[in-house]
Design a protein around this nucleic acid. Structure first.
Lengths: 290, 290
DNA sequence: CGTCGATTTGAAATCTATCAACGATGGTGG
DNA sequence: CCACCATCGTTGATAGATTTCAAATCGACG
């Protein structure tokens, strides 16, 4: 049905001329720095190639030297570290607009990145990328702030996973996903399209998937969440945030508006309007047609 | 300026001219970049003031705007985040040579820093610091690598704290501390002087202090550790590392030597010689250095 | 000596993992 | 269209890990 779903990577040389392949990246940068039209144009014209990955495929293998900078443009991916016994520990999630290593300083990652839902990735040569940073220092600042945001999220996970009951941890994680996914158009005011399996979530929290399942049931019984196919809804955003002890402040770039209780700015002014499913068609077989 | 507070801290306007107050910082930078004599001199002459903090005191309060860059020169401190109920989650440890925010981009921290053992801190004005970075790009690179190292450690904690038995987690943490403390002269080949209480350790791992205690006993019974006062020893460094699944690679700057089994280079050639205690006695102030 | 913080212990209450199964769903190929 | 397969969500039962609440012990220190 969709070109995206090819079993293996289908490299597509140059997708579209000066179009907005990297619009997700621009949007993310805009949440940190003022980005001029000139820069947008430049980014729009960056030579790049696009690769598609099926779910579970590696975007970057652990300790693989990389010749390029990779920008996720569609789908969801996860940073992971291999554990003995063939298991993986998930260290973070990448959403459209995220870069494999924001500070672009490392030649080699200390962890791998794998597609969670089918992904499209733009690959830009290191040289081209560096040139962009040289020409536009504000872009460099933006990337550094992205790196800081990653760090802030990692710290919050560390905090959240500390001594608190698993259901609060889960609630907190869901709140974070809500905010982050909403910022890229995969969520709305009262929920989001969830690409993650319970096993993914369990992995992040360091609990078993069976227990994760029970935690979800518990949250459901408490009326804190509702599940409709692949869409996860919050009957009351305020209630679950209180339950989780969630304060989205850490998800925001530093010099930006504190976002009053609802949505976190996210550059694009309000990309939500529909009722049933959020986000893109292709990726999530949203419950779609009800 | 906020006179940081009461009688405890003794401000010493300008300690010693040109001397090596910041030698710990230089040592740390040297583990990442080649640092010329010129730079060392410059750092040695940086205008700064030194503050002392008693254990438990805040070096930086959460979300307090900072006018200066702070370098830990003695003692051990912890990054923490306040939790509901007055508790704290420890997010990381700072050792001599560590900087409160290595990438120096943030005007404000998203977490606090508190002294664990009595600390001495050098405060350098933001302006002076920025000037240093402008004049010597390699120093900037060094700081960025320090920031990356912090990130790598946070990711490892996240990994380690995932689904593994608590005793392995604990062993892993102890191995990490061994390497890091050794690098600043607070440890030797088979152990280190431990400034942390079991409660600190428990906090990091997200378990109760009672359980931490039992874990320590278990490790002791297994012959993996031995406790002699404030010194924690490893009868067999290899054995506990295997038990913990510890690979110190993540603790090393990227382009440096892998340090064969014993010590992680650490710039300063050997500051240990006596048998009983590394560092020093009562409250872990490192031996008189200089 | 008395105090305070840290470590230790015991016992009961909870939480969580593990194992093993089953049902639902969606996609695939005949 | 149906049989088949794989993935995911769900459930029950049991063993094990961990927390919590006291209370006792120990050590450093004024």
């Amino acid at each position: 049905m969709d070109p995206v779903q090819s079993e293996h990577h289908a490299y597509q040389p140059h997708p579209q001329p000066g179009s907005s392949i990297l619009s997700a990246l621009v949007r993310k940068l805009e949440s940190f720095e003022i980005i001029s039209e000139e820069v947008k144009q430049r980014i729009g014209r960056l030579p790049l190639r696009v690769a598609s990955f099926a779910a579970r495929e590696d975007l970057v293998r652990e300790s693989e030297p990389r010749g390029e900078v990779r920008v996720l443009i569609e789908g969801m991916a996860g940073r992971y570290k291999a554990l003995d016994g063939g298991r993986h520990a998930i260290l973070g999630f990448l959403l459209p607009g995220d870069v494999d290593e924001a500070d672009a300083l490392a030649d080699e990652l200390d962890h791998g990145i794998a597609a969670i839902s089918p992904c499209k990735v733009a690959m830009v040569s290191r040289f081209t990328f560096d040139q962009l940073l040289v020409d536009f220092p504000e872009v460099g600042r933006g990337f550094r702030r992205m790196a800081r945001l990653d760090g802030a999220i990692a710290r919050m996970w560390l905090t959240n996973m500390g001594q608190r009951p698993a259901d609060r941890q889960a609630a907190h994680l869901l709140c974070e996903l809500h905010v982050r996914l909403s910022a890229v158009g995969m969520g709305g005011p009262d929920g989001f399209t969830n690409p993650l399996t319970q096993e993914h979530l369990a992995n992040v929290l360091g609990i078993s998937s069976v227990h994760m399942n029970r935690v979800m049931q518990h949250l459901r019984e408490e009326g804190l969440i509702r599940i409709e196919g692949h869409v996860l809804r919050f009957p009351s955003s305020a209630k679950i945030r209180e339950y989780a002890g969630f304060d989205g402040g850490y998800l925001m770039g530093e010099g930006r508006t504190p976002a009053p209780e609802s949505q976190p700015h996210a550059g694009a002014p309000d990309s939500r309007q529909r009722a049933p499913a959020y986000g893109s068609e292709t990726h999530f077989p949203t419950p779609g047609m009800e």
